[in-house]
Write a protein that binds this DNA or RNA. Structure first.
Lengths: 235, 235
DNA sequence: CCAAAAGTGTTATCGCTACACCCATGA
DNA sequence: TCATGGGTGTAGCGATAACACTTTTGG
């Protein structure tokens, strides 16, 4: 077939900012880059979009390759296209943030890739513009999580409300009044209380909850304000 | 310099969904495509990202070429990358929606391009996946405008509150109680009342207002809920 | 004087925030 | 028994939504 004349093509890639939560801190998953340039330096997980492959498929493939996970929550938040961002060849990169259950990942650890979780504030310097991507991904995560219950994606099937509250506190770097938080949570109707308790972090134990998946799906589009005074959020 | 081996490059383009408001309806600006394929069919305004050109620069260039306008409100909302979306050659397209003052555009009319404003619900069928882009741009516009005062970008320097309310009603396809609307508007502090009246749409006349640009900038990041019950918005 | 659009107040409800103490348990 | 983290209630405030009539004026 004919082509458009006089146009300069470029490479298209995807990069993932993969967030996880270990019950204490928000983490990101990084990998040691396996190819030149910058081989051996820390980087986001990414890959080129293949011929005949659509972009979403490419991210899913990259994620599965590096983490073994499918059906992960993914949010395409920006494309980075500075002509000089990759010194080897012009490459535009579609950035996604992913939210995964860190425990599911652990089960799949794959030592082919040198991958490592880092607490969000202790991550090493990354190649190219990946540090910028991480910053912007964090901002977008905050923005979106202020109104949509996406942070549940970071938790295991069974979790406790203190865990959940701590997660919100980590993401927003703030203290939340736990009575108000639990009231909002209850009124959201998203949680189902289980009879079992988690005794690992206190003597009294905290009840496990699970997501009400039906309500989760129907309420996902709703704006639920889990964060006090979200006016300051940058987007 | 060396290149990445075995990667297939593609073309990168930008497409703009340009919204305008004539005081009555929300409109989009379309153009008759000047090249094959689909020459002569209606299309969004777009163009290829040049070598050594960053993406944002490309949109700005495209917008200025077609509308004569600079410094337009632009929001990059998605990249469309289906391998078959352009039948000639694989092209990924970064979609932006733009909000412009339709009067400024009129002053710049440029008959080199066959461009035409269409009421949003009376637009013709578009090429490729442009209809999908328009639908998704509308959804994003609604989403964002529910919390950020971006719709002011569609109005001329001087405007009346009935015009503004009608704009919100058009965008959300709903009736808004005007006492509540005006109260929210007043409490936002974004408007400065002028002494002049617009008599064009009523005998009594409606006061003109202008934006308080300082407050607009500081409040832009704030969430201002101009729409009752925004819970249903899709994003 | 009348039609047509602009402009104006009140009330009830709801959701949010601030705030401090008791409970359960293992060690 | 005590240290630790889990869990609970209330009151005041502010924002929202529902609701209808008066004002202005050109024709």
């Amino acid at each position: 077939m004919n082509k458009y004349p006089n146009q300069t093509p470029l490479l298209l890639a995807v990069d993932c900012i993969i967030f996880g939560y270990d019950g204490i801190e928000l983490q990101i998953l990084l990998v040691k880059r396996a190819m030149e340039p910058a081989k051996g330096q820390w980087s986001l997980m990414g890959g080129f979009v293949g011929p005949d492959e659509n972009i979403y498929h490419a991210v899913e493939r990259v994620l599965e390759t590096y983490t073994g996970l499918k059906d992960v929550y993914l949010d395409q938040f920006k494309i980075y296209g500075d002509p000089k961002r990759d010194p080897i060849e012009r490459t535009a990169s579609v950035a996604y943030f992913a939210l995964i259950d860190i425990n599911k990942y652990k089960a799949q650890i794959n030592d082919v890739y040198e991958a490592k979780w880092f607490p969000i504030n202790e991550a090493p310097e990354l190649i190219f513009d990946h540090d910028l991507m991480v910053e912007e991904a964090k901002a977008r995560l905050r923005y979106k999580a202020a109104f949509h219950p996406i942070l549940f994606e970071l938790l295991p099937k069974k979790f406790t409300t203190p865990q959940l509250q701590n997660l919100y506190e980590q993401v927003y770097n703030t203290k939340i009044d736990n009575r108000n938080f639990l009231r909002k949570l209850a009124s959201s109707g998203l949680l189902i209380k289980l009879t079992e308790k988690d005794k690992s972090s206190s003597k009294r134990g905290a009840f496990y909850y699970k997501l009400d998946n039906t309500k989760y799906k129907t309420k996902f589009q709703s704006f639920i304000n889990f964060i006090p005074n979200p006016e300051q959020l940058v987007f």
